[in-house]
């Protein structure tokens, strides 16, 4: 039977929740194509994780890579290449994550296959699955058909729901997916020796704290590149001050440019927020930003481009110049007082 392989994402101490989103994606593909699902855990030999995954009814390969410590792109590419030339899987599901983006494209080349980045949905036509991914700053989705095998599907975090959850919150620890079969899958232990050495990992550190102010706030007014100039930030601060318990947040470019501190960055590499009200001002709605805001109760967006992607993920859409809108809102409140 043809196989779909899920490469488990973990941080050495445990399986990361995003793995269950890969499983959900694999299940959609499996249900439509009749292929079976197999999980692979590249690491130092991870029997506990293998037990956890196999208990979902999935056959699991515990792939111990000796001669390396922690994640190493050379080691992963080498070991997974060896395994996959034997298994000849049809689809390989990985994350469009810091790890997946690092090793998967090169692995795809080595295997003579293809890799499709940032997959957020799967639709089926007569030729088989088409993988949807954001293009053009999120304003469109491209539907992509693989032309070679194996096909590495790099899953956008937050795009697929882990089974058994209705939670729309990516990143929340979700219950395990429903059992694919009533019995635990077989666990196979394998060992591959790595003896490369162009890359030497020197350790991981967490550099910055994030999110406390954003976590506490009931209202977040978020500023994007659409504010144009740093000096305009004070207009957003004045606007935010109209709301009780509010704070100004930012999209990443404002933090990259040093206009705002990192702790105010919202998104996949910043904070995931869940305020009562999120007002996105001049933010286009890239998937990396959206990943941080899905937990908001009410999302209001102000953007001068009627086609901005953010409008697809907003409750209330305000098409127009953000400064014009803010002044109009302020005038209104002056009048009310």
């Amino acid at each position: 039977m043809r196989q779909i392989v899920v490469v488990v994402e973990h941080d050495a101490s445990g399986i990361l929740p995003v793995t269950h989103e890969f499983m959900a994606c694999a299940k959609i593909l499996g249900d439509q194509t009749g292929a079976s699902i197999l999980a692979v855990i590249p690491g130092k030999g991870e029997p506990a994780m293998a037990g956890e995954i196999s208990s979902l009814g999935v056959e699991t390969i515990d792939l111990a890579i000796t001669g390396m410590d922690g994640y190493n792109s050379e080691a992963w590419k080498g070991a997974l290449f060896q395994l996959f030339t034997t298994l000849a899987p049809w689809y390989i599901i990985v994350g469009h994550t810091a790890t997946g983006r690092d090793y998967a494209p090169g692995l795809g080349v080595r295997l003579g296959g293809c890799s499709i980045a940032g997959v957020n949905n799967i639709v089926f036509d007569k030729t088989g699955p088409l993988f949807s991914r954001q293009v053009l700053n999120g304003t469109q989705n491209a539907l992509v058909r693989p032309e070679t095998e194996p096909c590495i599907v790099m899953v956008q975090p937050g795009a697929f729901r882990a089974h058994g959850t209705s939670s729309p919150l990516p990143g929340r620890v979700s219950p395990l997916p429903g059992r694919v079969s009533p019995l635990p899958g077989r666990v196979i232990h394998m060992e591959v020796l790595f003896s490369g050495g162009k890359i030497q990992p020197l350790g991981i550190k967490t550099v910055a704290t994030r999110g406390e102010d954003l976590d506490r706030a009931a209202v977040i007014v978020a500023a994007g590149r659409g504010i144009g100039e740093r000096d305009n930030l004070h207009l957003l601060e004045r606007f935010a001050a109209l709301f009780p318990n509010s704070v100004v947040g930012a999209s990443r470019p404002l933090v990259d440019d040093g206009w705002m501190e990192y702790r105010f960055q919202v998104g996949i590499t910043g904070a995931r927020v869940s305020p009562k009200l999120y007002i996105a001002c001049g933010i286009s709605g890239s998937s990396q930003h959206l990943a941080g805001i899905t937990g908001s109760e009410l999302i209001v967006s102000v953007n001068s481009d009627p086609n901005a992607a953010i409008f697809n993920h907003s409750d209330i859409c305000i098409v127009g110049d953000l400064f014009g809108f803010i002044s109009a809102f302020e005038r209104l409140l002056d009048f009310q007082d």
């Binding site: 293009v135 989705n141 697809n312 993920h313 907003s314 859409c317």
Partner: peptide, 24 residues
């Protein structure tokens, strides 16, 4: 290695009520 078959408008995850009229 892959072909873009077509482009599509992204799915909406929220209602997206567009407010009409002037900015006021």
């Amino acid at each position: 290695t892959q072909t873009t078959v077509r482009l599509e408008a992204p799915l909406k995850s929220r209602a997206g009520r567009v407010l009409g009229g002037t900015l006021d």
